[in-house]
Amino acid sequence: MSLIVYRIGPSCTIQDQGRVGYLDQGLSRSGAADILALHEGAALLGQSPDLAALEMAGMGGEFEATQNMHIALTGARMQASIDGGPVSWNASHQLAAGQRLVIGAAVQGNYGYLHLGGGIEAKVFLGSRSAHLTARIGRAVQQGDTLTCGLHTGKTGLKLMPADRFAGGELRVVASFQTTLFDQATLDRFAANAFRRGTRANRMGMQVDSDGGGFAASGQLNILSEVITPGDIQMTGAGDPFILLPECQTTGGYPRIATVLPCDMPRAAQTPAGGPIRFKFVSMDEASALHTGFLSDLARLPSRVEPLVRDPHDIPDLLSYQLIGGVISATD
């Protein structure tokens, strides 16, 4: 089964949860910028969150199904339609052979995800299907490509209320090994400051702006290059913070003031340009509790999926649906 790509935004890549274990070879993990969206899509299609999906940065594309297939749409909300009829985001849908799926620009947030039932079948390299453009692994999906997928037998016509994470907000951070390079006054100012996401952002990292001065460490230019982990908040030479994302470098000489918790990385990555950001230091015990909660939320996602209730007038091809299956209700 496959989907033909007629048009596509400039920064759409195939992503799964990334490749672990190559840090010692200078290769960072890559993987979806919004891991939660990957799990939401898997829950909607009743499949494994290890399968790959199409990550669409800012802009989607136009696709045609070669056979009947199942899709789900998650992450940053984008305008979407099937054969001209609008379809719900955060939901799963049937796409019949010959039908055109059009996904427009992000309405809120940055990274939208198109999931195919059975997962996208891209080449596995070092244990993952994730493109890593910085490392020149894989490439952006282009017009004329075909996205093939595996077999899928689950239901569609389901929806999932997404965790709100598309307008910025508070990011919880823990102190890391270089935090003490910053004096207490700088750390206090950092924690109290109102930031906004800057315009410079890609899958390596995102700039965070504010109106005050920079946040420099003492002896910043003499620091030995040291290991980097995604979520690190790195200060450039001028003391401007960048939050590092899945394609970050594996080592670097710029000091890191703190690290955003994994549970808040979807919110960080989805904060639109200009969106407000604040950093809140939490203790390692609080962080562990938050992380445990995040993992159990992910595990509970399949149980939160519910039938998509829609006005029959909005359904583009009513006759193709199994109305007596109970999944779609025309009366509710």
Partner: peptide, 12 residues
């Protein structure tokens, strides 16, 4: 010995 981010440790 120090922590790195949420899930790392560093022996320097």
């Amino acid at each position: 010995v120090r922590t790195v981010g949420f899930d790392g440790a560093l022996v320097t």
